[in-house]
Design a protein around this nucleic acid. Structure first.
Lengths: 366, 366
DNA sequence: AGAAATTCTGAGAACGTTATCATAAGCGAA
DNA sequence: TTCGCTTATGATAACGTTCTCAGAATTTCT
C-alpha cells in the first residue's frame, strides 16, 4: 500500500513520449509538437503530477528563492519592507525566505549560512551593523550571490543600497519647525547610531542656514530606538528647568515615549510642546495625531527587490547603485506655531559642536 | 577562469577519503573515525565548502522548509503569528516561506501549488475562507503534507487547529461591562464573519446569565474588520437617538475607527461611552489606552508550529487536535463604571434574536 | 586463538529533473 | 532529386548529495 510519488517519467510513460519531451512540455521550453504537449499535460493532470522543484533546482542551478534578513518582522517598519520585497518576488515567480535575526550575531551567521546552503539566488538585508553580517555578506558575494542593502548597515559592502534621504528629511523637518517660530528645538537622537548622526546633520544644516546656533543642552541621547528609551530620556529632560518649544524624536517609538512623558508632566502637545517623529506608521492613530517624517517602507522593499532581480537576471558588471528615497514630512496636529516668545535663556555659545563617536548601535529599530 | 563550485567529492579527495565518508562526517551520521572526521572537516574549511542542501533534499526527501500562508504580513496580528512560527522553525533547523495571499483566490492557489512543488514539509495557514484554500489544502494533505490551521477558516479541514476562545473571551468582556453597570452595550460585529458570530455568542451568554435581553438596535454590523468600517458604522450609530453607555468592537481597527467617530461627535471616552476592543496590539499606545481582549498571537504561532512539527516528526496517526488559547481581558482607561442611570427606553422585548446567515467574510483581519 | 560483534570504509546506485547530443522527419529551394 | 534548414524526439549523462551494501579493520567475548 506504499504510495509511490509520481515522477516525470510516469507522466512520460502515460503520454507515450520520452521523459525529455515531457520535461519540455511541462517546462515550456524547446521544441514540442502540439500533439505531444497535449498528451503530456493531459497525463500530468490525470496522474496528479507535481513538478519537483528540488530536482529541477539541482539540475538547473536555479532555486527561485531569495533570502531576506531583518531584525524582526513584528516591527511594522520591516514588515512594510518585507511586503514590498515579497510582492516583487511573487511577480518574478520567486519565493522569499524571511529570517529574524534580532540583531543577534549568532543568528545572523546561522541564517546567512543557511541562505548560502539553500542556494538562494540573492539576499537582501535590513539589519544594523553586526559583526557576523560583514563577513557573511562577503562570503555570499564571493559565492556569486548578489546582496542588496535595504535600510541596513552601510558599513557592510553590498552590491546596491536603498536608503532614505535621512539628512534631507531631517533638514525639512527642522526647517519647518523653524518656520513656525521654534528656535528651542530638542532633538531626541540615539547614542551611537550611525543613521542618527546623519539625521542630525540635516537638523544642523537647517540651523546653520538660518544663522542660528544649537543649544547643546537640547540634544538628547536615548540608548536605543525603543519607546521606553524615549520615555525615560524625555522624562529626564522635562524635569530640568531648560525648556524647549518643540521636540523632534528620531523614531516613532521614541516619539510615543516622549508623548507619554509629556502627558504625565502635564505638558500639552501641541499647546506647550510641538512634537514630530520619524517613521509614520501609526502616527495618524495617536492622539494628537503625530506630525511625522514618513519613510516609504513598502517602496523601499520593492526597490531593493528590483535591484536584486536585475543582478540575478545577469546584470552583474554594473557599478553599484545607491537609491535614495525621499522622506516626506506629514504635517499633523501635534505641531503648532510657537505660542509666546520664549523668555528663557537665549540661544548662545559656539553652536552645537557634537563630537560623538560614530558607531552603529546593535539594537533598536534601524 | 571559470570558478568551479566545490562539491563533497572535492572535499573527499582533499581529505583522502571517499565521498560517502565525507558525507557521513559532514552530516554527522553513521560510523566515522575521529581521524577521518578531522581530516574531512579540515578539508571542508580549507576549500570553503558549502553543503548543498538542494542536492541533499533531493536525496533525503526532506527540505527543512515549511510554508506559511497568511493574508498580509503588514497586519501586526499576522506578523505576531509569523514570528511565533519562525522561532519554532528556527529551533528545529527549519526555514519558513511566508506568502501573503491578500485573501485572493488566485494567489492562494498559486502559493499552495508552489508549496507543494517546493516540497515543503508542512503548511500553516491563517487565512479566512477562500474557495481555492479548501481544494488546495486537501491536495496538500493527500500528498502527505501536514496542514495546520492557525486562526484561519475553520471551514477548511486541517489536521490541527489553533484558535482563541472567542466565545469565552467575549463572554468575559461582556460580563465585565455588565458588572460595571452597563446594560446598554453596543456590539460592533462584522457582517458575514463566522468568527464574529462565535464572539457574539459569548456576549449573548453573558446577557442571558443575568437574565437580561439585548436591544437589537445596539447590534452593529460593519462590512469588514477595517478601521474605516468601524468609523462609518459607529458614526452612523452615534447619529441616531438610540444611545449606548458602552461599545464593544470586535477588532482593534474597528475600535480605533469608533474612537475617532466618538471624538468627532464630542462623545467622551470613557466619560460618556466606555470602549473595549479585541486584539490588543497598539491599544496601550492609544489615548485613552484601550481596554482590550488580548489575543496571544505569538503564542498561537508557536503552538501551531509545534503541532505541525509533531506531524512532520512522524506522529501522523494521531487524531486531530484543537488547541484553544485563552483570550485575556486587559482593563484600561477607556472603560469606566456607568455614570448615570440610563433614562432612555428600557431594555425590553424578545431578547436579541439574531438570525444572521453565517458565512465567513472573505476580507478583513480574521 | 578463534569466533562474534562492532566499527569503519568505499563503490556504486539512486533521488527527479534538465542539458546535451545525435538523429529523424518535414519542407521549401536549388 | 538532393541539399539545407527548421522542428521534433529520445537516449544518456549530468546535477551533488546520501543510501545500500559488501567487505575490511578493529575490538570484545569465549
Amino acid at each position: 500500500m506504499e504510495k509511490k510519488t509520481i515522477t516525470i517519467k510516469d507522466v512520460a510513460k502515460e503520454a507515450r513520449v520520452s521523459a525529455a519531451t515531457a520535461s519540455r512540455a511541462l517546462g515550456n521550453y524547446g521544441y514540442v509538437s502540439d500533439e505531444a504537449r497535449r498528451k503530456v499535460l493531459e497525463a500530468a493532470k490525470k496522474l496528479n503530477y507535481n513538478h519537483n522543484l528540488v530536482a529541477k533546482s539541482l539540475r538547473t542551478h536555479r532555486t527561485l528563492i531569495i533570502g531576506y534578513l531583518l531584525p524582526d518582522i513584528t516591527n511594522p517598519f520591516y514588515a512594510g519592507i518585507a511586503r514590498g520585497i515579497q510582492d516583487v518576488a511573487f511577480e518574478q515567480g520567486y519565493n522569499a525566505i524571511i529570517c529574524n535575526n534580532d540583531n543577534d550575531t549568532t543568528k545572523t551567521e546561522r541564517f546567512l549560512k543557511m541562505f548560502i546552503r539553500n542556494r538562494v539566488e540573492g539576499i537582501i538585508y535590513s539589519t544594523p551593523f553586526n559583526k557576523a553580517l560583514e563577513g557573511m555578506v562577503e562570503i555570499a558575494m564571493k559565492n556569486g550571490i548578489p546582496v542588496v542593502n535595504c535600510y541596513g548597515s552601510t558599513r557592510v559592502k553590498a552590491l546596491d543600497v536603498v536608503t532614505g534621504d535621512a539628512e534631507g528629511g531631517c533638514y525639512k523637518v527642522t526647517q519647518y519647525l523653524l518656520s513656525l517660530g521654534h528656535t528651542r528645538i530638542a532633538f531626541l537622537k540615539v547614542l551611537g547610531s550611525g543613521i542618527s548622526e546623519k539625521r542630525f546633520a540635516g537638523c544642523k544644516r537647517a540651523f546653520e542656514e538660518k544663522g542660528l546656533a544649537m543649544d547643546p543642552e537640547l540634544i538628547l541621547e536615548a540608548n536605543d530606538y525603543s519607546q521606553m528609551s524615549g520615555y525615560l530620556t524625555a522624562k529626564n529632560f522635562f524635569s530640568k528647568k531648560n525648556k524647549a518649544s518643540a521636540l523632534f524624536a528620531f523614531s516613532e517609538q521614541l516619539g510615543i515615549g516622549a508623548l507619554k512623558a509629556a502627558r504625565e508632566e502635564g505638558i500639552e502637545v501641541p499647546g506647550t510642546l510641538s512634537l514630530v517623529a520619524i517613521d509614520d506608521i501609526m502616527a495618524e492613530m495617536l492622539h494628537p495625531p503625530l506630525a511625522s517624517l514618513s519613510i516609504p517602507t513598502y517602496e523601499a522593499g520593492r526597490m531593493a527587490a528590483l535591484l536584486l532581480f536585475e543582478r540575478i537576471g545577469g546584470r552583474v558588471n554594473v557599478p553599484s547603485r545607491q537609491v535614495m528615497l525621499e522622506e516626506r514630512l506629514i504635517m499633523r496636529e501635534s505641531v503648532s506655531r510657537v505660542a509666546m516668545v520664549n523668555n528663557e535663556k537665549e540661544v548662545s555659545g559656539e553652536g552645537g559642536e557634537i563630537s560623538q563617536e560614530v558607531k552603529e548601535v546593535g539594537e533598536g529599530e534601524k
